[in-house]
Design a binder for these strands. Structure first.
Length: 945
DNA sequence: TCTCTGCCTAGAGGA
């Protein structure tokens, strides 16, 4: 039976005498999860025992961990989650207790999914794991080559021809190879050397494998065919029991095969390689296969290197895996999980690797020296100033809290049932599998039909877990959504019979935030840090020329952007021509011969800004000097011609990127290995108030100086972690990072600290004066004003075919309030939705086109309710998604009856965004009693009535 | 059930 619960108190570890001699044991006081809950995998947590039941339905008991599991017990802290499989029960002083058996595994924090590579790194040196996370793996040739060899291996298993695969895989990495100064021929030759060893071995295996049937032998005559020979390539595996996730290179007859692009002439595989294979064995075991062997393929082993001892001719080394190794691997995994949850930093003393052999030795010593960390390798350099150390510590923990939030998303893959996932918009379920079709590249195209309506967050270009029913327990593979409407089309490496798609949570953003933080503080320019940490004032050498002659604030903003030596801040309230100002600033910079990075958090913002730059730069720069870096699905259609292809001839791709005078990319992409090789004179970051500090650094790190453009009175960065209440860690809640560390943008902090480095654009070109008034008073100290009389006086009458006189009197004013009592539900309001539908018809009757109307609601549930009532052409969305756009008429649904409940109303920046979207008319629809209950909303009501 | 975008995964190697 499995025992799962929360550690309730300190753990007692001691040595006792048994008939076998001295033995270690650990007694863990635990609070069990709801007793008789049957787990979805059919295992039953203990239900029948008469243990002490607590008021909350949890039972309290003691679990005894024997022998080597005491090592994992030492890691436990009260509040951590613990799982013991195959436990036995015993009675002690009238109380039922549990203890490990010979079959048991002990898993610390099982819902934290540890990567297989993390375990592999950790077994070599725990600090290596930490360093990889902190400073990232830079672009280097051995790694790129290794990746290509792996891809070719997968292709061979899927039946692709060797030369075709090599050519295609080398071609795909054109940009990376260009950055590394490699030629396709040399790389292909290098890959060929490694791949022929594999091919020969596969061929040999095919002849001797004796899969049995003559049918199999015949059908594999041409190329190796996995379908007939119980092979499977590249499978993503997740274990909910062991808390491990990884992607096996290949699986042969249920056993893992791991490829290594190197040489190993010894008889045995390297220990860390065995550990890696053992991880996959554990993963496979959970999927129902008993695994006791593994194979390692060292591609540089060839006949020439015949091992004297064994006479090995092949690159393959088979080895057997005992229960001891598997348990050892779980204990390693426990160390990582405990460290991640506690936020500890490994020193290197935990392992016994020799630092002089380590290729990360220099990095290790520098990080130790600069961050004042104890390390086995020693330290180089002086520690950062205290304020920087404190900052690093704080942000590191905030980012790690964010990482744990991503892990909670992983855990939902198995903790929530299908319907819950679907209701959460995180999965499409009950699909009807239609067909699988092999693609040229050896991948598969999979089609399924949707049997029910329903929304989901899934979009074209997203990476998803495609499964035949369950993303963890079933047959599942990572897939890319190609098309999603009534039919869903995805591509994947393996032909899964798809009936369900799940959002696959990614740690990529958190990984990149951490690296950006590291780069800023440890590699960053000293002068910049002096300014960021308030030791120096930002400097300017402002140009005399006039860039924009009809808007003083915009002109001043461009002067500051061009003349900043450290940074400049452009505060752009709604409709004030931020993008135009950016375009002018970039033009001025380019005219001065500077290379500019244009960035923002979202693809949409990057494309919008780039569009303005293209309009503004026009004649002054050839099109091929402007490059958009990003994925095909992320970049807007009309910007595709500027998008940098990754595939192709290395020299061409490199030239395209390096010759570009303006490079546009999201901040996440700025943290990519390719972009990190680039250098710029200026980084200009739009929508900077929506970025976390490390997110801003990802762009700023690449440039000599930076310009941030944004509005901190609009929406802040999206942060997932709650910054306090962390699952299973009540005892350390005092030390938990405050969410504020990531929710306040660098833009906002710098605007407050160095107001003189910023300019606020004060003329808006969007709203009728009456509409603008409230936002100006409430959020911009009354300083926002219409740019010209035509803006101040604009009304719906200006639009062709619209007659305001045809509207009821109440709606003739540019701002109107419609009092609706509401239906009292929490996140939806049918009464409001129906009233809004009527309003839309009223405006349509007065001549307004549906696509000039936008409806904003606070909750997604209300958005979908309203959508059902109104024509498709009307844009209905949440505030968050409306940020950055505008409409002639905006109708706001407040969706609250009696009182304003919920945190969504507490952030007034959200109401600022909603009220500043319209150009000519604004209608507020809501319950006046609810709105009056809050002073800001009450003032809004007064203004609107 | 408050709002929610990124990135494309993990892992690729070297004594």
């Amino acid at each position: 039976m499995d025992v799962r619960g929360i550690v309730a108190d300190d753990v007692d570890v001691r040595t006792v005498s048994t008939s076998y001699g001295e033995t270690e044991l650990a007694e863990v006081p635990m609070r069990l999860e709801t007793a008789d809950a049957e787990r979805p995998d059919g295992r039953v947590a203990d239900g029948g025992l008469e243990t002490e039941r607590l008021a909350d339905g949890h039972e309290r008991t003691t679990v005894t961990l024997w022998n080597k599991w005491t090592e994992s017990a030492q890691l436990l802290e009260p509040g951590m989650e613990l799982l013991v499989t195959d436990a036995e029960t015993k009675e002690y002083q009238g109380e039922k207790q549990y203890s490990t058996t010979g079959e048991s595994y002990v898993v610390v924090e099982p819902s934290f999914l540890v990567n297989v590579t993390a375990i592999r790194n950790w077994v070599e040196c725990p600090r290596l794991y930490y360093l990889n996370k902190l400073s990232g793996v830079p672009l280097n040739y051995p790694v790129v080559k290794g990746t290509i060899v792996h891809e070719v291996f997968g292709d061979l298993l899927r039946g692709r021809e060797l030369e075709e695969s090599i050519d295609a895989r080398v071609e795909e990495r054109g940009l990376q190879l260009g950055l590394l100064g490699e030629t396709p021929e040399a790389v292909a030759e290098d890959v060929r050397e490694n791949a022929t060893a594999i091919e020969g071995w596969l061929e040999q295996g095919r002849l001797t494998e004796g899969d049995g049937s003559t049918e199999a032998a015949e059908s594999t005559e041409q190329t190796f065919s996995p379908a007939e020979s119980s092979w499977r390539s590249e499978q993503l595996l997740i274990s909910e029991t062991f808390g491990i996730r990884g992607r096996a290179d290949a699986i042969r007859r249920g056993a893992p095969v791991e490829l290594k692009t190197g040489k190993n002439l010894r008889k045995e595989p390297r220990f860390k390689d065995k550990v890696q294979a053992a991880c996959y064995a554990l993963l496979l075991e959970e999927h129902g296969d008993e695994v006791d062997t593994g194979t390692l393929l060292y591609t540089k082993n060839s006949a020439l290197d015949r091992n004297e001892e064994t006479g090995d001719l092949t690159p393959a080394k088979d080895f057997s895996m005992g229960a001891g190794l598997l348990k050892f691997v779980v204990r390693l995994r426990n160390e990582i999980a405990a460290m991640e949850v506690n936020g500890d930093v490994p020193t290197g003393y935990e392992g016994d690797a020799k630092c002089e052999y380590c290729f990360e030795q220099d990095t290790c010593m520098v990080v130790s020296g600069r961050l004042a960390q104890e390390s086995k390798a020693g330290q180089i350099g002086r520690p950062l100033p205290d304020e920087e150390l404190e900052y690093f510590e704080r942000l590191y923990r905030a980012i790690e809290a964010e990482r744990r939030a991503v892990h909670r998303e992983y855990a939902k893959l198995w903790r929530q049932d299908a319907q819950e996932r679907a209701d959460d918009d995180r999965a499409l379920i009950d699909l009807e599998f239609v067909e699988k079709r092999p693609l040229e590249e050896g991948r598969w195209e999979l089609r399924a039909r949707r049997t029910a309506g329903g929304t989901s967050k899934l979009r074209e270009g997203d990476l998803v877990l495609a499964s035949d029913g369950h993303p963890v327990r079933g047959d599942a593979e990572l897939a890319m959504i190609e098309r999603i409407d009534e039919e869903v089309v995805v591509t994947a490496d393996e032909p899964v019979e798809v009936t369900r798609l799940d959002v696959y949570p990614s740690e990529l953003t958190t990984d990149r935030l951490l690296v950006a933080l590291h780069d800023c503080l440890l590699k960053g320019d000293g002068r910049r840090k002096d300014v960021l940490f308030g030791r120096e004032e930002p400097a300017f050498s402002l140009p005399e020329e006039t860039f924009i002659d009809n808007n003083a604030a915009q002109n001043e903003a461009v002067r500051k952007a061009v003349g900043a030596e450290d940074f400049a801040l452009i505060h752009g309230p709604p409709g004030t021509g931020k993008t135009y100002t950016i375009a002018r600033a970039i033009r001025a910079m380019v005219d001065r011969g500077e290379r500019v990075l244009l960035s923002a958090f979202t693809n949409r913002a990057v494309d919008n800004a780039l569009e303005a730059v293209l309009e503004g730069i026009g004649d002054s720069l050839d099109d091929d000097r402007i490059v958009r870096v990003g994925s095909e699905s992320g970049v807007r259609e009309d910007m595709q011609p500027y998008r940098l292809e990754r595939a192709g001839d290395p020299e061409d791709r490199l030239a395209e990127l390096e010759n570009a005078r303006v490079v546009a990319a999201t901040t996440a992409t700025c943290g990519s290995r390719e972009m990190k090789e680039q250098a710029f004179d200026v980084a200009l970051v739009d929508e900077a108030a929506q970025l976390t500090e490390p997110g801003t650094f990802a762009a700023a790190n690449l440039a000599e100086r930076f310009v941030l453009v944004g509005d901190h009175e609009q929406l802040p960065p999206v942060v997932r972690s709650e910054g306090g209440t962390q699952h299973g860690l009540e005892n350390t809640s005092d030390d938990e990072p405050r969410a504020a560390d990531l929710t306040e943008s660098l833009f906002e902090r710098l605007v407050e600290r160095f107001p003189e480095a910023g300019v606020m654009l004060d003329c808006q070109y969007r709203m009728n004066q009456r509409i603008q008034y409230f936002a100006s008073q409430e959020f911009y100290d009354g300083e926002l004003r219409p740019a010209e009389p035509a803006v101040a006086g604009r009304t719906l009458d200006d639009l062709e075919g619209v007659t305001r006189d045809a509207l009821p009197e109440q709606l003739r004013d540019p701002v109107a309030f419609v009092d609706v009592e509401g239906d009292g539900s929490r996140y939806t309001d049918d009464v409001e939705a129906a009233r809004i539908a009527e309003l839309i018809e009223t405006y349509a009757d007065a001549g307004l086109a549906y696509d000039d109307i936008g409806v904003i609601a606070p909750f997604r549930a209300q958005v979908s309710t309203i959508s059902k009532h109104v024509p498709d052409a009307v844009a209905v969305d949440t505030v968050d998604r409306f940020q950055g756009s505008s409409q002639e008429l905006i109708i706001v649904s407040f969706t609250a009856t009696g009182q304003l409940e919920g945190p969504i109303f507490e952030d007034y920046r959200r109401i600022n965004v909603a009220l500043t979207r319209p150009k000519r008319a604004l209608v507020l629809v809501g319950d006046s009693r609810a709105l009056e209950s809050d002073p800001v909303y009450a003032r809004m009501l007064e203004w609107a009535q």
